[in-house]
Design a binder for these strands. Structure first.
Lengths: 333, 333
DNA sequence: CTGTTAGCGCCTTCAT
DNA sequence: ATGAAGGCGCTAACAG
């Protein structure tokens, strides 16, 4: 593949300077006389010279690309984060290598390895839990890592997210305050810290404060998918719950549609609060009330944080928590 | 960034062979005695050696990464394509550099340039139209390019898509056959070949065959967004149209919701056929009837085609057209 | 089957 | 302000 015949040498000889000088102007090194700089620049675009980033990467040990592990681009929650990441990345002249992991530990480890082999300058990880193996890959490499939209229970890894306990607590409280005695919590496997540790804790706290006993049968562990949401509704219904806090938008749309399809009036007979406030929440009828996590911002801030880490700048806080809100729509009243 | 101290030399000396031999075993070259191979392999994982892909790329002139230009990852149409691309890419050991373009010509050119500077082995372009400048960037680089989910009017560039004329014609015909006299076509700017050339042609052909005169006022050019769909409905209503063929799912959800919000019965008083059959179409109530383009497959096949191109294998057809269908749901009857 | 030797294209001291 | 020279880590002939 002889993509680009012309190299820094061609430019140098054409401009009658040494390649060092060409390198300098290309890299904006001030130690070049204005006249020669102009001459070089001139040759550069006359020859349509384009620095070879691979060679540059080898010599400088920087690739200006970061690896991004994403469970599934097709999921709006993650693609929103990804968009924030990419925008900030390009703002700082970085590119993103995007790799889908399907939350599969093996794939993740495998992907992280090829990413490190490609000498990415940093890594952003999205996903609900980090396997020990993955964590050890992270720690033995000196490449900075930041988690976007998820938490590290040990707070060892940098991460940006929201206060999940408080968020879930707030949403649960709203549902409780609205008079619902039985509020279902629909979430992922409790073995994941996010669901099992944070969300569940927030849920229990709200229950506690309302003086309502925790009822295990009101907690539903499922897959984060539309189908799963659709399927879980009838089980929720059996418990007599009159409201549900659902941890994912697609899932929530599933729950909502199942309710509607079953002839249940929403929000009159059943209330729903979703969790991600993606575009989806506005597309349903009735529109979904939802926790509002600033997804784009989480991605953006995560990337920004990563740039600092890559730059070895001092970071005061390794974990940044962004604010959240609850956007009231029509599945609550 | 001294990420990986150990190099092929370390492995070589530790295993008491030359670096060439190490290189051979790493690259699966058969010319290595089984015994030495085992010994080298042993040292490799004892030292936790990981080949530096950048150096490899410089020496071999192959980076095993391809650039992917996407308008917006957050759009399900494109993220579905992207998912297909990534899956096949990883199947062939390639990684993807994903760059959002917002369909902005300037950004596109800029991004393609940095991608080429990074020596990607190939490029996949998604987007509705290719500016002349971009096309010229493509042609003067020897890097193979394939368009995913869009057409090249000149058929110069490799591409994979569906027969848009036939698809739109078929959908329009269905609406016409159902008794609708006035069928609206909601699409993007007619200046884009996809809308102006292909979709419009299909639409007209169906009209023709049905013996109905083409009425320009039934064609709506808008942005491909939920909001735009929401907004365009009342204009459609003014024309007295009783059905619409909408070129994007988010847009279609907008049209549907606007109709619903206006108290219009769907499909009794107004029918809708959407175009991409993404998950979204199943999430609305009523569910959207939609053209079914095999988005994931388009992405997958595009990537597969690109591997062939990168491999300099002979290609018989530079443009591959996949089959399509119309998935009947509840916005038609 | 294995080792030697050139590069790949660029960055980066170190001189001048 | 500019040039010379030595890598960066690996692949790829070319010998043996």
């Amino acid at each position: 593949m002889e993509k680009q015949a012309i190299t820094i040498y061609d430019v140098a000889s054409e401009a009658k300077v040494s390649m060092a000088t060409v390198s300098r102007v290309v890299n904006g090194n001030p130690n070049v006389k204005a006249a020669t700089r102009r001459r070089v620049l001139d040759v550069i675009d006359r020859l349509d010279y384009r620095p070879n980033a691979v060679a540059r990467g080898l010599a400088s040990k920087k690739t200006t690309t970061v690896g991004v592990i994403i469970p599934d681009v097709t999921n709006m929650f993650y693609s929103s984060l990804a968009r924030g990441i990419d925008d900030v990345a390009s703002m700082y002249k970085y590119n993103i290598i995007l790799a889908n992991s399907d939350e599969n530990n093996q794939k993740e480890v495998q992907v992280v390895n090829t990413l490190l082999a490609k000498q990415v300058d940093g890594l952003i990880y999205m996903g609900r839990s980090i396997s020990d193996e993955l964590r050890s890959e992270f720690s033995r490499s000196k490449t900075p890592v930041v988690l976007a939209g998820s938490v590290d229970p040990d707070e060892q890894l940098a991460s940006v997210n929201i206060d999940y306990v408080a968020a879930v607590k707030g949403a649960t409280k709203q549902l409780l305050d609205a008079g619902n005695k039985k509020v279902a919590l629909v979430t992922g496997p409790l073995t994941e810290p996010l669901s099992g540790k944070y969300r569940l804790r927030g849920y229990k706290q709200a229950l506690d404060e309302a003086g309502i006993a925790y009822d295990e049968s009101l907690v539903f562990e499922t897959e984060y998918s539309y189908q799963a949401g659709l399927a879980v509704f009838k089980q929720i219904q059996k418990t007599g719950a009159t409201a549900a806090l659902v941890s994912d938008d697609e899932m929530a749309v599933g729950v909502l549609n199942a309710a509607l399809d079953a002839g249940v009036q929403v929000p009159d007979d059943f209330q729903i609060i979703s969790s991600n406030n993606t575009k989806l929440t506005q597309m349903t009828r009735p529109q979904l009330t939802s926790l509002d996590q600033p997804l784009y911002d989480i991605g953006a801030v995560a990337m920004r944080l990563l740039t600092k880490l890559m730059n070895k700048e001092g970071i005061d806080e390794i974990t940044v928590r962004l604010g959240f809100d609850i956007t009231q729509r029509n599945t609550t009243k």
